[in-house]
Design a protein around this nucleic acid. Structure first.
Lengths: 167, 167
DNA sequence: AAATTATGTCAATAAAGCTGACATATTATG
DNA sequence: CATAATATGTCAGCTTTATTGACATAATTT
């Protein structure tokens, strides 16, 4: 087992006398730390834009997501929204209630199935969704500056590929 | 102001008699809703992998971030970490304490400035960071399948461009 | 000697999620 | 028609991750 000993010694050299690791974890090229970190920073900054706007209305990210998807697909039901956001009914309830009480979203009983509550944005709801999307869209446009159509397609494919398969 | 009236009427047509909006908000091509949503889903699924691992140890995302960056830059100080994560000292304190108490991270007084607490991963800490990065890296590799080097570069540039400028 | 810096800690608070349990109205099914 | 299933709402309690403010200690700088 000489090979294993060599590996062990090599690893040992990277540690101080205390048994701690002094060297940056690089993954030896096998782990893509650069993309992992870049993705983290990119997303954090990406959501910081709407966060600032939401703070003025006393809303948070949860409200953003609800108002966004209801605007993107007016008439979606509560069940649709739960499916899209993958949160629990109880989590959604509080946020949705606040948006309805504040006049950004309205519920309409389903025309065929009257148990359903179909969700629609009001004018204020539509304006809020647009105001929240605008800085994000500007950020995306900035990041795309100088990109060829192929480059843009690569980004689109990448973001799709990072997602779990959907039914 | 006939032009304005036309726009108002046009918008009005998109609403039901109730004043609600029935049509999907598309932004008329000006707002990049596709990327906004794709980025949301991609990031959510991206962090779901480590979340599952962390749950076993009773840790959360905050612990992930700390263990990740300490491994990436061993010897970083508490101030460095606060700067990187952009959270408050008090938020970091609890998480860091748990990681130290559990034997994943150790503190060493700074050799020049002994007020500083330099942070180092233990062997367990390094292993945890690797275990958390592994599924994320696999997901990235999957998303990159069939990508040319130019495609990959486009993604890297995009993620960098989405971030705020750093000092 | 005094001010600043790096860190730690206590207390209170908030946002956003969770689980479990139960209620109501409506629709579907045997 | 009675019962089961579905869509939604709601109550209560809990957790994680963040926040602000205040204060303490040790070490360094001025």
């Amino acid at each position: 087992m000489k090979g294993n000993d060599d590996v062990a010694r090599q690893t040992q050299e990277k540690r101080a006398a205390t048994g701690l690791f002094n060297e940056a974890m690089t993954g030896g090229g096998a782990i893509d730390f650069e993309i992992i970190e870049s993705f983290f920073f990119a997303y954090r900054d990406f959501v910081s834009d709407p966060d600032a706007i939401l703070a003025k209305s006393g809303f948070g990210r949860a409200h953003h997501r609800v108002v966004h998807f209801v605007n993107r697909e007016p008439g979606m039901t509560v069940a649709d929204l739960l499916d899209t956001l993958q949160i629990t009914k109880q989590s959604l309830a509080r946020v949705l209630k606040q948006l309805i009480d504040s006049g950004y979203i309205q519920q309409v009983a389903g025309p065929e199935d009257r148990r359903q509550r179909k969700l629609y944005p009001t004018r204020a709801g539509r304006e809020l969704a647009l105001a929240l999307a605008e800085p994000q869209s500007r950020r995306i446009a900035r990041a795309f500056q100088g990109f060829t159509p192929e480059d843009r397609k690569a980004v689109t494919r990448f973001l799709a590929g990072m997602q779990n398969a959907r039914d």
